[in-house]
Simulated scan of single mutants.
Amino acid sequence: MGLKAGTDAKQIRNRLKYSPTVFEFFTNEDDFTPEGLKRLEYDIQWVKSEATAKIILHHPMRFKGEFTELVAPSKKFPELHNFIYQTTEDLLQFAFDYDIQTLVHGSYARRTQFFIDMYPNLSTARKEVFAQLDELAEWGQEHIMFENSISPIFYYGNEDEENDILKHNYRLAFDTSHCFIKCQGSNELLKRALKHLKSNVVHYHLVDSMGKTHDSLTLGQGKIDWKMVLPLLNPAATSIYEINLANQEDAKEQVESHYFLTELYKKISDDLTIMPKNR
């Protein structure tokens, strides 16, 4: 069971009662003050001692209300650029010290086009982002991974885009809902992307979706074909359920997603057991 929480003690305590085998911290701007970093380090030690050593630190999504987009031109947004790099360095320091992982978004979506429009064209913007990802990959080595979005930059669901990503041999985080939405709700395209990127994926965000908007649904409530997805996951990768919660202090929807997938796995296994052998 892979669960996600912020650095709030009530959230962490709630997740720990389920004895997760993977734990992902969703960090925010406040976690990078001197006091915040001390708290985060304590939380890492807490989870590691009581539950699991498989810990992922999710890079903060926003800085002063703005998305932490690598595509944001550094000359026009120096404070944002510096925050992205400093916080990545902070998380990687923990990752190396505690032998855990740092997750950085290659892109987001909601403001990406705003930044892309500041470049001569999309190709130039993409080159800038990949240059930064190359630098961060060099920094993080085996302790960093990059997650897909639904923006025109760094997404899964298009073979040419995926081939460009694979050329860099990045360690990848695969968000199923992001890919499904980018594929406009096509399970066939999601299947192809899962197979194509499988060997480079080190972590999954297992999330359901209707395939139209960023809805982050409990597994089984959307249109993703999980019976198709399960056999295509890299067994060496970790995973968590990144589901919208009604109450951040209660992992109910994440846990329900795990039970759904566990039951589906049992059913698939049972079906395979009773299938007649080829003669």
Rank of each mutant, 00 (worst) to 15 (best):
V207Y: 07
R62S: 10
I268C: 08
Y18Q: 04
H58G: 00
K10H: 11
K76Q: 12
R126Y: 07
H203N: 13
A95E: 02
L3I: 06
S151L: 06
T88G: 05
L103N: 09
N82T: 11
K17G: 07
Y170M: 07
I84Q: 06
G157C: 02
E249C: 11
N200T: 11
Y259I: 14
I84M: 06
D164A: 15
S269T: 15
V129C: 00
G6A: 05
Q86N: 12
Q221S: 11
I56F: 12
K182D: 08
Y156H: 12
F77V: 04
L92R: 01
E50I: 03
E50S: 10
I165L: 13
F23R: 03
K76W: 09
L194F: 04
A173H: 15
F67C: 09
H205Q: 08
H178Q: 10
D117T: 02
Y156S: 04
M1N: 08
E162W: 06
E138K: 11
D164Q: 15
T213A: 09
E188A: 13
N82R: 14
D271C: 12
E253T: 03
D215P: 10
L122S: 01
A131R: 13
Q113W: 09
E128P: 04
L136V: 05
Y265T: 15
D43E: 13
L103A: 07
G220M: 06
T21Y: 10
D99R: 07
H203I: 11
P276N: 05
F114Y: 12
V255K: 01
N148T: 11
T213H: 12
Q141Y: 07
F130S: 00
T68N: 06
L40T: 04
T262Q: 15
I181F: 09
R279N: 14
D43N: 13
F25V: 04
L272I: 13
S186H: 00
K252Y: 13
T68Q: 00
K64N: 13
E89F: 13
G140M: 02
E135M: 10
H81G: 01
L91M: 08
L232H: 08
E79C: 04
E128Y: 11
V202Y: 12
T27A: 01
E29K: 02
I150W: 09
E142F: 06
D164S: 15
Q254T: 06
F154Q: 03
E79A: 14
N234M: 04
L230I: 15
D225F: 07
T102F: 02
H203R: 08
Y204F: 08
D164C: 12
M210W: 12
T68W: 05
E142P: 05
F130P: 02
Y259T: 14
F32A: 01
K191A: 10
Q248N: 10
P231L: 08
D117P: 08
S186M: 02
W139E: 00
N244S: 08
Q11T: 02
Y119F: 10
F96R: 03
L190A: 01
F67Y: 15
A246S: 11
S19Y: 10
A246F: 10
D43I: 03
K48N: 06
D270C: 10
E147M: 07
Q86I: 08
R171I: 11
L91N: 01
N247S: 04
F115M: 01
L16Q: 02
F146V: 03
Q248T: 14
I243N: 01
K266L: 11
G140K: 05
I100T: 02
E142M: 05
D175C: 09
G36D: 01
